[in-house]
């Protein structure tokens, strides 16, 4: 396998009960790149994202076929603990979802779960909040409830919270769809900054966002991977007609 590939899917099918949500997906995600997953609603892009850290396990009556290879192993093989996978593959959700705890405890939550990591939580909190460009705004109110922050601040807190686990990969499920343009711009800058250290896979409905921040883009339609290439190529001269139609707004 290519050394630049961090996680790869081989003929992955996914079912909600009888419904097939993903059909024969084969793709490689590259290390330290931002990969955008785009496509109309219901095309399976969020489902695919949630497959990568086994969040779909939480939904009853679902089934996965095929292999998702991460660190040389299929993450769906029976001897793999999903908890370990989720520690290495972090996730940021569509709606900011800080815990109803203090800002400090939101960040400390993950590291405190791993007993060995209880070393210097204070430093970790400061470091990750700085990484998420939130430190200056919250350094004096670390013991206040995270619920008091604005939506954009909450989302950056959620990113910081995910970073505190020092993940290999950061999955983002439409992280700016619930935010105003200014908060969105801040998150996008942040993603730009983070890709030096992390692999980021982001689902977005916003075509301009995908074009702005991603290195590679995958277009999904009705559970199929239609086209997957460098972002520049997808947005300038896509190989498939459907991709072009979607990007130019002819459907979706």
């Amino acid at each position: 396998m290519d050394a630049n590939v961090i996680i790869s899917l081989n003929n992955v099918n996914f079912y909600y009960g009888q419904n097939r949500a993903l059909t024969d997906i084969t793709m490689n995600f590259r290390k330290n790149k931002v990969t955008a997953l785009i496509g109309p609603s219901g095309c399976g892009k969020s489902t695919l994202l949630r497959l990568l850290n086994r969040m779909n396990d939480l939904i009853d009556d679902t089934r996965v076929e095929g292999d998702i290879i991460y660190e040389g192993k299929n993450i769906y093989s029976p001897d793999i603990d999903p908890v370990e996978i989720r520690k290495k593959i972090g996730m940021v959700f569509q709606k900011p979802n800080p815990f109803p705890k203090t800002i400090y405890n939101n960040i400390a939550y993950g590291p405190k779960l791993t007993a060995s990591n209880t070393g210097d939580i204070n430093m970790l909190v400061e470091q990750t909040l700085k990484q998420a460009v939130l430190w200056d705004e919250v350094k004096d109110i670390l013991n206040q409830s995270a619920m008091k922050l604005s939506g954009g601040q909450q989302q950056r807190l959620c990113i910081a919270r995910a970073l505190a686990m020092k993940p290999d990969i950061l999955l983002m499920d439409e992280p700016t769809s619930a935010l105003d343009p200014i908060s969105t711009a801040k998150i996008e800058e942040l993603i730009e900054e983070l890709k030096k250290d992390y692999t980021i896979i982001i689902v977005t409905h916003n075509m301009q966002q995908a074009a702005r921040i991603s290195d590679e883009t995958a277009f999904f339609y009705l559970g199929n991977l239609i086209e997957y290439n460098k972002t520049e190529k997808i947005f300038t001269k896509p190989d498939v007609k459907q991709t072009e139609d979607y990007i130019t707004g002819r459907f979706g």
Binding site: R86, F93, Y109
Partner: peptide
Amino acid sequence: PQEFKEASYALGAT
């Protein structure tokens, strides 16, 4: 809210 639970699981909580 379901979001709290998802956030916790996504951080590797059991």
